[in-house]
Amino acid sequence: MQLQINGEAVQAEDRIDVGRLLSRLELNPQLVVVELNRRILTPEDFSETALTQGDVLEIVQFVGGG
């Protein structure tokens, strides 16, 4: 199925959940914020949220310092 991630079209296996998508993208779930269809997810949502065709995601990575 096709997703949009950070403005780009990306192919992914059907019904993949957000948690598996993050590991496929080699992203540490503790260091990212995920918005799915204009709604921010909590980390608990990651493995419970199955993605579907046309879903729009923003995945934002953070680095430390402040």
Partner: peptide, 8 residues
């Protein structure tokens, strides 16, 4: 915050 995990 300072730590990236705290930010998220």
């Amino acid at each position: 915050f300072d730590a990236a995990a705290e930010k998220t």
